Simulated scan of single mutants.
Amino acid sequence: MNYFIMSHDERVYNAVKPMGVSQVITKEMLDEEHIRKMNKVHFQFPISEQNEAEYVDFIQKPIPLVSDRCKQLMEKYVPHMCFKSVVLTDQKQPRQDVYWLIVPPRVHCLSVENEFHKDGTVKRLIIDEQKAAPYKIFRIDGILEDYILISLDVAESLLRRGFTGIRLKKVEKEGVYER
């Protein structure tokens, strides 16, 4: 099976940008246990002011957020994945949109062939397909980066439905060199 890194499409220059998120939700809180504890907490963040902001289906930073439509599709593939609602508010124009903080499970699936830079970041990401095979949407355990990986069938579903703001990059598999 093929896997893809799901990232924000930087070609969408006017994508909405939530503000003040890092002061409320830290990277250490981005695990299933912390998110489930915050079940009764409601998050609302303003977006940065810009002319004609585009409400994309995936916001990668500062935390991974997906649109309601994208969440519905992901739940079909991973029904028990942890999501937390987040409201993005445009104060200039009276508009509020529900996005979902996505917290995929962390999977230890790094290949021994993986290569790292001296600072510990990934130089060449290679996964062990057998360890990743049971998962459709997941994060990689054991690396500094917070990549979200999706399986080929999830990627195809996203592409067929015209989601915006999503870029996909194929991940190498152990023993297969795709240069």
Rank of each mutant, 00 (worst) to 15 (best):
N2K: 11
I5Q: 02
D9T: 00
E10P: 13
N14A: 12
K17V: 12
S22C: 10
V24F: 01
E28N: 14
E33L: 14
E33S: 12
H34C: 15
K37N: 13
N39E: 15
K40Q: 05
V41I: 10
F43Q: 02
F43S: 02
S48H: 14
Q50E: 11
V56T: 06
F58T: 01
S67L: 04
S67C: 12
D68C: 10
R69Q: 13
Q72I: 12
K76Y: 08
V78A: 13
F83S: 03
K84H: 10
V86E: 04
K92H: 14
Q93T: 14
P94R: 15
Q96S: 13
D97G: 09
W100S: 00
I102F: 11
P104M: 09
V107H: 04
C109P: 01
N114E: 12
E115I: 07
H117T: 07
D119E: 08
K123I: 05
I127Q: 03
D128M: 00
A133K: 11
P134H: 07
F138E: 02
R139E: 09
D141K: 15
L144Y: 13
L144W: 08
L152Q: 11
L152K: 06
V154Q: 00
E156F: 14
L158T: 03
L158Q: 00
R160H: 11
R167Y: 08
K169Q: 13
E172M: 10
E172D: 08
G175A: 12
E178N: 09
